[in-house]
């Protein structure tokens, strides 16, 4: 007892020294008291689970906001440790989830057997494989064609030829402003009336190419223009032709600027193949929707969601890796 007393006294002294200058609401004791009162109030006030009436719901929201404010005082406090801020933020999220589960009226018991009814999925897996194949084919064909077209138009646009500039500018503006779903529907459902019939797959490809090559034209042009005049001057002074200069000097350097927006665009393109659902292309989403009707459960839709994520998240990480790699020879 006697031995521990001096150290305890010094602990209290140190505590006072460290935190005594703070206003009460920034001190740990103050915060602890606030949270205790808040928790007691919750235990006493919070209604039963289920959908509450509006005034009660507002009271619940107010109770939640009170906790949020308490955590916020910790978050804006520079002297509080990071781990406390992290835990505080996490509890805010967790509390939101808990309140949502308790009061939103969602049928939680159904999530399992409606969204994850894997026992009813026989025969569906083959459809997925088919759908995924079509999605990847559509992505690859559309990406390849629009890259060639976008690169060509981007290079042509960077020449600032007055006539080319006008036509390419019009093309780019038109297809950047046109919603993809509109051009796809027009190509597939409207053009046949004037005798132009495209199979669904190629109608979808065409719409994807028109839109994405317009975006890519701008990406390539900006990349090309980011290479300084001195570079093409030096290449020309060596006797390289315009085409050689573009190929050996300008484009390799432009790619450094181009890679992030271009890979973004390609990821969008893969996602946008889902729009081909509206013109009956048998891609991933279409097949999932057929399976929903066939099996009478939304599980296939949930699964297709995860399939898109499983395909595209690695793709996004790959693009990050590319960016880091190309950043290596950036000038100091």
């Amino acid at each position: 007892m006697n031995e521990s007393e001096p150290s305890q006294a010094s602990f209290l002294d140190r505590w006072r020294l460290r935190f005594g200058h703070l206003p009460w609401y920034r001190r740990y004791e103050g915060l602890l008291l606030v949270v205790a009162v808040w928790a007691a109030g919750g235990a006493w006030l919070l209604p039963e689970a289920g959908r509450p009436d509006l005034p009660v719901a507002l009271a619940v929201v107010a109770w939640y906001v009170a906790y949020f404010l308490a955590v916020a005082t910790v978050l804006v406090d520079r002297e509080k440790p990071t781990w406390l801020k992290r835990i505080g933020s996490l509890t805010v999220l967790a509390l939101f989830g808990w309140l949502f589960v308790r009061y939103s009226g969602t049928r939680w018991d159904r999530v399992q057997d409606q969204f994850f009814a894997f026992d009813r999925m026989d025969g569906v897996w083959a459809m997925y494989l088919q759908g995924l194949t079509v999605t990847l084919q559509l992505s690859a064909v559309a990406a390849a064609i629009s890259l060639v077209l976008g690169l060509t138009l981007g290079v042509l646009r960077s020449l600032h030829h007055p006539v080319l500039e006008l036509f390419i500018g019009l093309y780019v503006d038109f297809f950047r402003a046109m919603p993809l779903i509109v051009s796809m529907v027009v190509i597939f459902y409207a053009l046949p009336f004037i005798g132009i019939r495209l199979p669904a797959f190629w109608a979808a490809t065409l719409a994807l190419v028109l839109m994405n090559s317009a975006y890519q034209t701008e990406i390539f042009r900006a990349g090309i223009e980011s290479v300084t005049r001195g570079q093409s001057d030096a290449a020309a002074a060596l006797g390289l032709s315009g085409v050689q200069t573009m190929w050996h000097i300008v484009l390799p350097q432009a790619f450094r600027t181009i890679i992030p927006p271009l890979t973004n665009n390609l990821v969008s393109l893969v996602k946008d193949t889902a729009v081909a659902y509206v013109i009956t292309v048998p891609e991933l989403l279409t097949n999932a929707q057929h399976a929903v009707v066939w099996k009478r459960t939304p599980t296939p839709l949930i699964l297709s969601m995860f399939l898109y994520l499983a395909t595209l998240i690695p793709a996004i990480h790959f693009t990050r890796w590319l960016e880091r790699r190309s950043a290596r020879w950036v000038a100091r």
Binding site: G230, D233, A234, G239
Partner: peptide
């Protein structure tokens, strides 16, 4: 131009 060398103020070497 191949027969005329040119050296620039900012070097203009090809950084890649």
């Amino acid at each position: 131009r191949a027969d005329i060398g040119m050296v620039f103020q900012e070097y203009n070497l090809f950084p890649h």
